Amino acid sequence: MVLREYMARMDGQDPEKALELLEPDFRFLIALPGGRRTGTSRADFAEYIAGRAAVDRTHEITRYAVDADVETAYGFVVEQGVTTGAFLSAVRISPTGLMARYQSFFTTDFDLVDRP
């Protein structure tokens, strides 16, 4: 379950460790209220990580599913103890077990599932 490990690493003290889970030609789309971030390589994602604000942030997964080489997660982002919004993320896993593609949508004004 690579997606869970990826989120745990992104939430940890050293988010660059998430890069170890990505294929070199990793492709991604992250849709945030302020705009989209995209890239076509592990290096592009390293730039994204470097540009993120360092805050006490966690991804609290409330729904998770796996179907063959695709994993999906739904949950809430919590920063410094305050829920800031909800995310819906999906990843395609390569034959080597690494993340090949990642798509994530984050919203601050709509919850698909009520927060427990």
Results as ranks from 00 to 15, higher is better:
D111S: 13
A46N: 07
V66L: 11
R36E: 14
R52S: 03
Y48G: 02
Y74Q: 08
E16I: 02
M10S: 01
A8D: 09
D109P: 01
D25Q: 13
P24A: 12
A31G: 04
Y64C: 10
L32W: 07
G97R: 09
V66G: 03
P33E: 10
L98Q: 10
F110K: 13
A50T: 07
A43T: 06
M10V: 10
L32T: 14
E23L: 07
R57F: 05
I61A: 03
A90K: 06
D11N: 14
L29R: 12
Q103C: 10
D69V: 07
Q80D: 14
D69K: 12
R37Q: 11
R101N: 08
D11C: 07
I49A: 03
V82F: 08
E79K: 06
D44L: 06
I61F: 01
A100G: 14
I30D: 03
R52V: 05
I49M: 02
E47I: 06
A54S: 13
M99T: 03
G51H: 09
A54K: 15
T38N: 11
I30P: 02
D69M: 09
T96V: 09
V91N: 00
G35Y: 07
Y102G: 00
G97K: 13
A65E: 13
Q13D: 14
T96N: 09
V82Y: 03
Q103N: 14
M7E: 08
Y64Q: 14
T62R: 00
V70K: 14
A73L: 03
Y102N: 01
I30W: 08
S41R: 06
D44R: 03
A54P: 03
P33Y: 08
F28A: 02
P24R: 08
A43I: 08
G81M: 07
